[in-house]
Computed example of a mutant assay.
Amino acid sequence: MLRRAHARGAGRSHPLSGRLTRDMRNFLPLRSTLLLVLMAPVAMARGRDPNVWSAYVRGRPDEWVRRLNVTPEAVTVLRFQQPCDREGTKILGWEGRFEPVECAGKKVLVEPLQALDPEDRFLMVVKLADGTEVPFTLMRATKKEGEWPDQQVNVFIEPDTHESLQKDLEETRKREEALSEVVERRYREDTADHALAKLLVTGDIKQTALVQREKWVLKGRSARIVARVYGGKTKAAVLFTVTNRDPSKPWSLAEARLRAMRPGEDQSPPFLFGEARPFALRADCDEIAPGETGSIAVVVDRNAFHTETGLVKTLALEIYRQDGLLDTHVVLDRRLLRE
């Protein structure tokens, strides 16, 4: 006899359906203006890890002002080779939008009081102890590549020093590694399952052989999530439709995990010890603005149920949002697959 899953306000579960819980728990941080000649920002790692890069000041005055992507969720730190001048360092028109800009020795701290609007631009000038003025334009940070929040910027006024050259070499190596990861990831994602996930996330379900088995609705404090569970001859899939209910903060996917469940294992998340299984994922946007809706599709091949220890009956799919919290999970039964 098949066990049925229940969720408050969701109705009765289909015996072949996935399971969606309401559990949202924490799973586990000179006097002239100089041209900035810059290296591209270096993402230290994926997800929520710091975005650290270096700026090298060269060239004619007023030729280019470097932009900084800032967010109220993190303090942006500028590090210089000499102390800054507190009186001469300022943001123009900052009142009510930023904390007062702080000079702490060789560091400058920038913190918005609220998320900036997409069209917002604020000019900040950092004055150093020798009279050098370095300009920046403060803009809204997003999850898009090239617009990630800048958490630390190392500014070199003398770009040919040993320290700056060493830093340049380190960042060049990191950029090469990051580009290699991008190429490898795109190669891995050039699969039929990723193409199928793309059809789901764009609403072209009729172009697939998948059949919807169940639909669940989760209403949390930060998001309303609708999960549609699909079955097919050799595939199972879940389409998450996420509506951001937070009045000010964007919602984004930090990580999705798929693990094999052991017989008799408690079906409450998080699932820590099961064998990680492969899946394909596609999303229609990098982040979901307050009040907006986005989609995430996950496709699982029947081979994912074949582990090193043998065939398993169920797989646990977990969805973690940008702050590291587990937003929801779905338990996929092997009987979703029509042989």
Rank of each mutant, 00 (worst) to 15 (best):
F27W: 04
V77Q: 01
R334E: 10
A223H: 03
R8S: 14
F27H: 05
D85Q: 04
R3Y: 11
S17V: 02
P159V: 13
L30N: 02
E102W: 06
T309Y: 10
G105W: 01
A178Q: 02
G93K: 05
S17N: 11
K206H: 08
P149K: 02
V182I: 11
A10E: 01
L317A: 07
E275Q: 15
N303A: 09
H329Y: 12
V300P: 06
R67K: 03
A289F: 11
K235H: 15
F240P: 00
K249S: 08
L272Q: 13
E99W: 14
T21V: 14
F240D: 00
D284Q: 06
G231A: 08
A129M: 04
E63P: 01
L337R: 13
T309C: 06
L239A: 07
V238W: 10
P250D: 04
L35N: 04
R67M: 08
K144M: 07
T309N: 11
A254Q: 11
C103Q: 02
R175D: 06
V110Y: 01
T71F: 07
M24F: 08
E176L: 14
T71Q: 08
V298M: 11
L38Q: 14
G232T: 10
L20Y: 12
T33N: 08
P247Y: 15
V70L: 06
L38P: 14
R22N: 15
G220L: 12
T234V: 15
